[in-house]
């Protein structure tokens, strides 16, 4: 058997496996029938239903709000943590700091969620803060586990750059604060952007931690979707998947065209 033939077969199967379920969902989102798997003809009915469903729209709005605020704070903290890990050697209890800033990467969500919930309850008992569970507690939780992801991205980027570019800036007369603003930050900017995007998706995607830490008025999109699909299928969720897929594919194509042009220059 030909080697490149084997390669295409393998890649073909791999990508088919990745995309088959998603495409099925998209196709069935145009199904007229209320019973998801019985095809009754093409219709945009479920998209209309989706955009009329106040519960989903409300949850979507809350999710986007929490995700963007959480991503912003997580990026801020993650940049600081990543910079400290990569560039500052004198940190008290350094290995403890390394532990708490990388362990959330692999800590099972259910344990993180449980610990944060118990923390909020204890804090409420002791200090009366937070006064109730809700958007704020979900936000704090999302920031906490996203920080580790951003920190790792920033640290990797900083480690791949020789420290000498920062020294060069100093040598050329830049004071330490100016070095950070004019050299370090611009150099890691692409990683800051991808860190923000990752933190945003992590927050938008999270069900388990949000379920633990949520309260009245803070039902995020995953919580609503989960309650809809836990027991059975929902044609509206199919339509929702198609919409999300469309947004992501658009972004991905845009990104691809941008990077492809860049490759052509090289």
């Amino acid at each position: 058997m030909n080697k490149s033939f084997l390669k295409y077969i393998l890649l073909g199967f791999g990508f088919a496996f990745l995309y088959f379920p998603i495409f099925t969902l998209i196709i069935y989102s145009f199904n007229e029938s209320k019973r998801v798997m019985v095809w009754k003809g093409f219709s945009l009915k479920w998209y209309v239903e989706l955009f009329k469903n106040e519960q989903i729209l409300e949850a979507f709005y809350i999710s986007i709000k929490i995700a963007s605020i959480s991503a912003t704070f997580a990026t801020l903290l993650g940049v600081m943590a990543g910079y400290s890990l990569a560039r500052i050697s004198k940190i008290p209890f350094r290995s403890f700091f390394i532990f708490i800033s990388t362990a959330p990467l692999v800590m099972p969500e259910i344990i993180l969620g449980l610990s944060l919930l118990l923390f909020f309850i204890s804090a409420n008992n002791l200090f009366g803060l937070p006064s109730s569970k809700g958007q704020l507690t979900v936000l704090i939780s999302h920031i906490t586990f996203s920080v580790a992801f951003v920190a790792v991205i920033i640290q990797a980027r900083l480690s791949s750059f020789n420290k000498s570019i920062e020294e060069a800036a100093q040598d050329l007369g830049a004071v330490p604060n100016s070095v950070i603003w004019k050299v370090t930050l611009p150099v890691i900017l692409p990683s800051i952007i991808s860190g923000w995007l990752l933190a945003f998706t992590l927050s938008l995607d999270d069900l388990v931690i949000a379920s633990f830490t949520t309260g009245p008025g803070a039902n995020t999109l995953p919580i609503v979707v989960f309650s809809k699909v836990r027991m059975g299928l929902s044609p509206e969720v199919n339509a929702l998947s198609a919409v999300i897929m469309l947004v992501i594919v658009t972004i991905a194509i845009g990104y691809y065209i941008k990077t492809r042009n860049k490759l052509d220059v090289n």
């Binding site: 000498s164 060069a168 004071v175 330490p176 150099v187 900017l189």
Partner: peptide, 21 residues
């Protein structure tokens, strides 16, 4: 005197050119 105040300059081994400029 800190590095940024010294009236001298250094050319680094790997040049350390700023990749974003």
């Amino acid at each position: 005197l800190p590095a940024y105040k010294r009236p001298l300059n250094i050319m680094f081994q790997s040049y350390a050119l700023f990749p974003h400029l």
